[in-house]
């Protein structure tokens, strides 16, 4: 059997056998990335919306910076968060390094700008559409932000899914701040990196296929929810 068919049959065995260890790792990945995306949503979407609606000096620079952050290497985020959380760093007293919380923080830093950048574009387009209407109603800008966030909720799902995709698939940041500790901070991606470095390439690919399956299921769920919601409000 060649490496690929071996990997695929191993992936099915992992999925079918419901390997307890794999389930644990998938669970941690979902928890960490899910929370990071939740925090990213709470921070990134309002931030993006403010940038989309606001008109102030330096806004263009902020937009460029934000779009640039979409390409931020996860390793850089990992190192920066590591230095912050390290015992010798400014937040060292919290003792958060090598914990799932640290991984959530790092991934939040990673996905919030991405989600904000996508939200900014979405909200700005919608704002152009409603601007006259809102101005005549003399809506305060903060109300405009709130209303547009609500109005674009279906399109903003794309921002959330992009954040989730980036969080679930990144390895650099969680590896550095989580430490890839067995049964504590090992996620799908760090497990894949570990199996690759142990030379067990079929298992690495199999885990990759499991990760892909998980991401596909999440995207499918999101699509179903979106369609249900769209039917509600045309």
């Amino acid at each position: 059997m060649n490496a690929f068919s071996l990997a695929i049959s191993e992936a099915f065995a992992l999925l079918a056998g419901f390997d307890h260890r794999v389930a644990e790792i998938v669970g941690l990945s979902l928890q960490v990335s899910g929370l990071a995306v939740l925090l990213g949503t709470l921070i990134g979407l309002p931030l993006g919306a403010c940038l989309g609606v606001g008109r102030f000096r330096g806004r263009q620079l902020l937009v460029i910076a934000l779009n640039g952050c979409m390409g931020l290497p996860s390793v850089v985020v990992g190192v920066v968060v590591y230095l912050l959380l390290s015992r010798s760093g400014p937040l060292g007293d919290l003792g958060l390094l090598y914990s799932p919380t640290a991984m959530v923080l790092a991934q939040t830093v990673l996905v919030a700008p991405l989600m904000a950048a996508i939200a900014r574009q979405t909200i700005e387009d919608a704002w152009h559409d409603y601007e006259e209407e809102f101005r005549v109603l003399r809506l305060r800008w903060i109300d405009s932000v709130r209303v547009l966030l609500h109005d674009c909720r279906h399109s903003l799902l794309v921002a959330v899914l992009a954040g989730l995709g980036r969080a679930m698939s990144e390895v650099g940041a969680v590896m550095i701040v989580g430490g890839n500790i067995d049964r504590s901070t090992r996620t799908m991606t760090t497990a894949i990196a570990l199996e690759t470095s142990k030379g067990d390439l079929p298992l690495a690919v199999a885990l990759g296929l499991v990760l892909l399956a998980v991401i596909l299921v999440l995207n499918g769920l999101a699509l179903v929810v979106r369609q249900w919601a769209m039917r509600r409000y045309a």
Binding site: L35, L38, L39, T41, L42, T101, V104, R146, L149, R153
Partner: peptide, 29 residues
């Protein structure tokens, strides 16, 4: 928009609850 804000608020609270898990026994790195 209130519904959305309420939902996000609840979500934030549950995050905080999860982020500080109770650690059983001693752990060394």
């Amino acid at each position: 928009a209130n519904g959305l804000l309420k939902f996000l608020g609840c979500a934030a609270v549950s995050v905080m609850a999860w982020v500080s898990p109770a650690q059983a026994g001693e752990t060394i790195v």
